[in-house]
Nucleic acid binder design. Structure first.
Length: 286
DNA sequence: CGTTACCTGAAA
DNA sequence: TTTCAGGTAACG
């Protein structure tokens, strides 16, 4: 569920709360543990790794949250489709689908909730593995037009699929890819390698713009997403195309269409969004 | 590269 | 009853 703006909102909420605090309790639902931490990890191993550890900082890489521990290791957490992380007092009523709890030395607890149990925790010694499977951070200086252009070059796959690939850009998901392609006026099913320079430049800018807007609105709460305090975001009220099938385009009033691209539900305006291909071939004029 | 699986529920 | 869901990993 959460994409970069949602994960970043959670990170900003939780960072000041967990930084410098020590983990004093680790509870994980028995049935959830093997799915969460992998079949090889038992609760005692997890407890001995986390209990007594202080969290130095809370970072983010793509859609991953990184709890930096005082022993140099990192707890890498991914919320996948339905994960939530909320900061509570022990006396607060239990969250729906609460699967794990980290208790801190100030008496608060961080509650991990996950309806579908797709979320993951992994303890690592360094960020090497993440570095190999993730592309550039789109909100940082390392995200450069030249590298972005190169990542599209020669690829036959639909531009939407290439943007969803975390090796192209880290942190984009189904919502923000559809929104970025609308903003760049590009049809989602255009082969990535056929995009002309103009559309590539527009898309490069649009990726940052839609993510920035998502962060400003504290994430999109279409279904399960809530921030670190359990509150919904606002971005779902500001989307241009995502899940607006049949509703009028805000630019041209043409009904938004829904198609399947790379097995994913895809929303676009058939009038505003063109193929954006290089030179001839029924494109920019259409 | 596309397809399938992981899990649970809400909506059509 | 069937389909769909904001993600990824493991397949062929």
């Amino acid at each position: 569920m959460p994409e970069l703006p949602e994960v970043e909102t959670i990170r900003r909420d939780l960072a000041p709360l967990v930084s410098g605090r020590t983990i004093v309790r680790v509870d994980v639902d028995q049935a959830t543990l093997p799915l969460l931490a992998g079949p090889a990890v038992d609760i005692e191993a997890l407890r001995s790794s986390l209990s007594g550890r202080a969290v130095s900082t809370l970072d983010r890489r793509g859609k991953y949250l990184l709890f930096r521990l005082d022993d140099g290791r990192t707890l890498v957490a991914h919320l996948r489709m339905t994960g939530r992380l909320v900061w509570r007092c022990p006396a607060d009523p239990p969250e729906p689908y609460q699967r794990a709890v980290l208790g801190f030395d100030d008496g608060h607890e961080l509650r991990w909730c996950d309806l579908r149990k797709f979320g993951t925790w992994k303890l690592v010694d360094d960020d090497e593995e993440l570095a190999t499977k993730l592309g550039p951070e789109p909100m940082e200086g390392e995200f450069a037009l030249a590298a972005f252009r190169r990542s599209l070059q020669g690829r036959k796959a639909a531009i939407k699929s290439v943007l969803l690939d975390q090796k192209s850009v880290a942190g984009l998901g189904n919502i923000y890819v559809d929104e970025a392609l609308f903003r760049a006026r590009i049809r989602p099913d255009t082969p990535a390698g056929e995009l002309a320079e103009g559309p590539i430049k527009r898309l490069f800018a649009a990726v940052r713009e839609v993510l920035e807007q998502g962060i400003q609105h504290r994430g999109a709460s279409f279904r399960d997403y809530v921030d670190g305090q359990g509150h919904t975001g606002e971005q779902h009220m500001h989307v241009q195309v995502f899940r607006r099938t049949g509703k009028p385009c805000y630019v041209c009033t043409t009904p938004i269409e829904r198609i399947i691209v790379g097995q994913r539900s895809t929303h676009y305006c058939p009038r505003c969004q063109k193929s954006g291909r290089r030179r001839r071939g029924g494109t920019s004029a259409r």
